[in-house]
Amino acid sequence: MAESLADSASNPGHAGDDPSRRDFIHIVAAAAAVGGAAAVAWPLIDQMNPAADTLALASVEFDLSKVELGQEVTIAWRKQPLFIRHRTPKEIAEAVAGDHADLKDPQTDADRVKAGHAEWLILLGSCTHLGCVPLFGQGEYGGWFCPCHGSVYDTSGRIRKGPAPLNLAVPEYAFLNDKTVKIG
């Protein structure tokens, strides 16, 4: 620093004669301006991401004894529909049989339920195409059909036909006991 001061003192009024020093000042000034703008822009962008209260949405517990065999209950979880389906032996058999079909998003039925609880299928009720809620009991695979763009899911919630790319998502959940699940 002392040296550079000495340089400019020896060459008064001709600071521009040293191009590398002038370039350095330009680069530092521009970098500071870009860095400053980015530092201001980030809070303005990040404010749109989920707020703390949205992120803090708690998990839910659900009493399965309310759901009869062959029945399906839709509950709200993180503001999204969640299907809790009490599958019949026929549905389970169809789902297991589908394990060897030509699947778009290959997964076995066993991977989509908890061991020993094959009759309980818990799914996010949100079509993986564009987010509509699929309807049960329609479509040729005995499972769900999305009314928006015609995606068809089987009795394991796997995508079989239509534009959706993935199987219906299985949320993180655990059985607290035989009759209660905790989702999330």
Partner: peptide, 24 residues
Amino acid sequence: NLLGAFPIIGKPITTLLWGGFAVD
């Protein structure tokens, strides 16, 4: 959800647009 079709950037963009896990 259309924007969610794009790989990698799709999901963060929809979350950013929604300000949550769904339209709310």
